[in-house]
Simulated assay, not measured.
Amino acid sequence: MKTLILHTCLALCALTILQARTWTEAQTGRTLEADFVQVQDGSVIVRTTNGGTLQLPLGRLSEADQTFVKEQVPAKPVEKEPGKEDVKKQLMGTWDGYMADSDGSRHGDIRLVITGDKITASNPQGDREMGAGTYKITGKRIDATGTEGQFAGKKYEGIFDLDGKTLKWCSANDRPSSSRPTKMQTDPQAGQFLMVLEKK
Rank of each mutant, 00 (worst) to 15 (best):
L18V: 14
Y135Q: 05
E85V: 04
H7T: 08
E129C: 09
M99W: 15
N50W: 05
S102R: 07
L56N: 11
P124T: 08
K136F: 06
P57A: 12
M1R: 07
P188K: 13
L197Q: 09
T31D: 04
G83Q: 09
Q27P: 00
M1L: 09
D101L: 06
Y156H: 12
T120G: 09
R175P: 11
L4D: 11
A11K: 01
S179V: 10
D101I: 04
E79S: 09
L56Y: 05
K84Y: 01
T53K: 12
K80M: 12
H107I: 00
A172M: 01
D101F: 07
T94W: 01
K154R: 14
E85W: 03
G52A: 14
E71R: 09
G149A: 10
L4N: 03
G97W: 08
T145A: 12
E85N: 10
T186Y: 09
G52P: 01
T53A: 01
M130D: 01
D117Y: 10
L32W: 04
R47V: 05
F151H: 06
T166H: 14
D143M: 02
F160Y: 15
T134S: 10
H7F: 12
A132D: 05
L58C: 09
R106H: 08
T94V: 15
A100Q: 08
Y156N: 11
K70D: 10
K140M: 05
K84Q: 15
L56T: 03
L167A: 02
T186F: 00
P188D: 15
G133V: 02
D117C: 07
A64W: 02
A14S: 14
D143N: 12
